[in-house]
Structures are given as structure tokens and as C-alpha cells.
Design a protein around this nucleic acid. Structure first.
Lengths: 238, 238
DNA sequence: CGTTGGTTTGAAAGGACTCAAGAGGGGTGG
DNA sequence: CCACCCCTCTTGAGTCCTTTCAAACCAACG
């Protein structure tokens, strides 16, 4: 687990102010005056696939913005079973429990190489009360997290597994030229996202490939020959 | 659907200020000064079981605090399938999409007779930016909603249906004397909560009764002879 | 007393799980 | 650079759980 730290408060024109994805993240609406209020350092970190970012139950001292890669949020039940409750994508905020002074409700780990910003909770909780702009942004991000969680729940966890996989792909697909490509994760993780065993994921992928819905199954991605075809399949009510 | 409206801004000692469940809801930390800033009326409403409060896609103009009863939040997918993404319980806030100036992400309907407060979004969005106390409270409520949604997701939707039902009962049980009682809803609704068909719910209830885990199954509730026994059952990893 | 909406129960079919074996890929050490 | 190992993924066969389609049941209500 190698980490490259770049400590960075708002200084003239650097970091957050010039962040390439700032428009989509927490500080989108902040102006220079707001940045001036940030004193604690915001770390810019990289993690390798498989690394844990934080663990369920830990006191939440930081919240995070994901810049690149994917992160899974795994909620463990008392009986040892667990579910991946959210798949964090670039631009998303996670670990917001920090704002409530609570401990993390799930553990976060990288499922690809990731690049993220680690923000001390103090920055947000004080700044949030002084800056209406940040306040709005926090509430908005929180709302997005909830709505992502709910639609994830509803779409990725309803119906036959092939249908769920289809919806999953449509949601994550990136168009590149003529074909679309969707990422794949460890079958075990995908099983935890959709509440099936990993063998079932494997079989469903094979079956979907046979039907021509997806192609070029590899460890980390699939191709979608026809988005339209996959969409129709995902909506087949029977 | 009968509704009794009581318009009420903060006036001396009435309404919100003296609300019996205020400590657990949105205005918990507000003081008199904050209440003075509330001008739009907050309606106090009752709905019969089965009534719709708002529909998915509608522009969100109000948020709601539930005082009594249960409300289901149903998220519809494009293909017509749906899931109950959250079960709102007394003290919970719902319809917070209003704060984001968005439309509702799911529809809300009463699954028992309910008593709730309907709060115009303007109150919160303006007041929220002026009052750090309310800001904190909003963020907190939002966090609770997310965490409820996630643990719901993880606990009520993982494993065999009987296990899920057990966790569901443990979560909703109310101790009354020697026995605990847990509410039941329409089998159809319970199926939508747990992603099974209503017949499966019915069968699972019967089977759990045979095993002595629950008793006195009626349309609207069950009794739990031994919480401890049910807890052990719910954690049986095999 | 028949209708109606909701619930229970049955039997057969289908999907997912379990256990198990085999294949593929990447990394390590010789 | 190759052989080997380990981890992950795939595939198979039988079992178990859930669904489907039906029919019966029940309580509330007109």
C-alpha cells in the first residue's frame, strides 16, 4: 500500500482551487473567501486495489472525495454476513459519518487503484456553519448519496440476476467509440453487491455472453455490443 | 382521506415549540430566536392507511416529519418493478429531496394510519443557512436516513427469507410486558421490502410459527415469545 | 348472504446454492 | 526464462429455496 501525500491548504492558486474535478465535488461552489477559512491540510492519497480506507466502527475523523477508481462500502451484520451498500464512483463523497461525530457505518476499501482526497472533519463542520454555499453543497452531496443508495438498492437488487447485471452494466457503462465498456469487479464483490454467490455471477455472465448481450468478458471488464439491446433486455418484465 | 389542518408558526408556546416529539425531530435544537424566523405555516396532517403522500417524480415542495404510524417509500424502476427502499418510522424525516430543489426520488404512502407534519421547503432552506443549529440537525437527519437505508439494505435483504424476517421483527419489536410485539404489513408490501413474492412471506411466517419463533400471527402483527431465541435464530450463520 | 380484497396452502417448475473439480493468469523463485 | 504455486474464475451435478399458477379460505362490508 503505497501512499503519496501532498499536504495542501488553500494557497494562492494551488490544489483544491485548481482541482480538475472540483466542479463535481464538495467544494464546487466555494469562493476564495471560503477557501481562506480552510486551515487543516487536505491530503491527496493513492491506494492500491484491495487496500482498506477505513473500517466499520472506527471513529469517523475524515471524510473523503473519490477522484479516480472505485471504492466499495461494505456493511457487516452482527452475524458476520455483509453487503456492499454502495459503490463509490469518481466525484462521490463518502465517509460522511464524520460530520455527525459518529463512527463509520461501513468499511471502505478500494476495488481498483484509487486516487482520493482525505478531508478532516473539522474543516467541514466549522466551515459548513459559516458558509451557506458549502452548507448547500453538503446537503446536496448527502442527498446524492442517499438517492444513489436507494436506486442502487432498487435497481441492482430486484429481479433475476441477469436483469440485475444488465442494469448494473447500463449504469456503469462508458461509451468509447462504437462499443460501450463496463467495468467488472471480483466475482465475490459483485456477489456481495447483488446478494448472490460468486458462482452465480460467473454463470450469469456466461449466459449473457451466449445471448449476445455482452462480449469479451475479462477479469475486469466486458463489452456491450448494443446498449439498446441490453436496455431492452433489462426492461423485459417477464 | 380526512385531513385536519392546524396552521402554526411559532407563537408563544404553541405547536412546534411544545411538540411532544420535538426532541427527536428536525427542530430539536432550535431556540425561540430560530422559531421566530419561521413564517410559512407547518401543517399537521392525518392520513388513512393506503393514502399516498407524494409520488415519485413530483416536484418536491415539502418535507415531512412522521409523528405516528408507518410510511413506505417505494422506488419504481423504469421497467415497472419496484422496491420499498425505506420504512419510515415515527421521528423520521422524509421527502428531503425538497431541500435539493429536486423531484421526489420515490413515492410515499401510508401503510397504517399516520400523523405527520408537512413542512414547506422554504422554511428549511432559508433557516438552515442562518441557523447553525438547524444546519447540524438537517445534516444529522440526513445521515440517519442514509444509515437507516444502508442497514436496512444490508440486514433485511441478505440471506434466507426467514432470517430476514427475523431481523425485521427484531428491528421493529416493541416490548410490552412479558412478550414483544412486532408489526406486520400487507404481505405484498413486505414482499416489496424483502424482494420476495407475497406467498413466500406467508409461507415463511407459517414456518417460523411452527418453529415457535413467533406466535399469534394476525393481519397486522405477530408476537415474539422469546426475543433471545429469535435473535439467536437471526444470527445462525448456517 | 354474496362480494371483495387480502391471506394461506398446494404442487410443479425454475432459479440460486452447495460442494467439488478443473482451468486460467499473475507472481515468485529457481 | 520457465516451472510452480496461489488465487480467482469457470463449469458441473444435485439439492434447496423461491416462484408460479391455482384454488381455497377468511374477515369485513354492503
Amino acid at each position: 500500500m503505497k501512499t503519496i501525500e501532498i499536504k495542501s491548504a488553500w494557497q494562492g492558486n494551488s490544489d483544491c482551487g485548481s482541482c480538475s474535478i472540483r466542479s463535481s465535488v464538495l467544494f464546487a461552489e466555494l469562493n476564495e473567501e471560503d477557501f481562506a477559512k480552510i486551515h487543516s491540510p487536505i491530503d491527496d492519497l493513492r491506494f492500491e486495489a484491495g487496500s482498506g480506507i477505513y473500517a466499520q466502527g472506527e471513529l469517523a475523523e475524515h471524510l473523503y472525495t473519490l477522484r479516480e477508481g472505485y471504492i466499495k462500502l461494505l456493511h457487516l451484520n452482527t452475524d458476520g454476513s455483509g453487503r456492499i451498500v454502495r459503490l463509490v464512483m469518481p466525484g462521490d463523497l463518502f465517509g460522511m459519518e464524520a460530520l455527525l461525530g459518529e463512527s463509520y457505518a461501513h468499511s471502505a476499501s478500494a476495488i481498483s487503484n484509487v486516487h482520493l482526497c482525505k478531508i478532516p472533519k473539522a474543516i467541514i463542520s466549522t466551515l459548513g456553519e459559516e458558509s451557506p454555499r458549502l452548507h448547500r453543497q453538503i446537503v446536496k452531496k448527502w442527498g446524492e448519496a442517499l438517492s444513489q443508495s436507494e436506486s442502487w438498492f432498487s435497481e441492482i437488487n430486484t429481479g433475476r440476476i441477469e436483469i440485475r447485471l444488465a442494469r448494473f452494466f447500463l449504469r456503469l457503462a462508458k461509451i468509447s467509440g462504437d462499443m460501450a465498456v463496463a467495468p467488472l469487479f471480483k466475482r465475490e464483490d459483485m456477489g456481495l453487491m447483488m446478494d448472490v454467490k460468486f458462482e452465480t455471477i460467473s454463470r450469469a455472465l456466461a449466459s449473457m455472453a451466449e445471448q449476445g448481450l455482452i462480449s469479451n468478458i475479462s477479469r475486469l471488464s466486458i463489452q456491450i455490443p448494443s446498449i439498446e439491446k441490453l436496455r431492452i433486455f433489462s426492461q423485459a418484465s417477464i
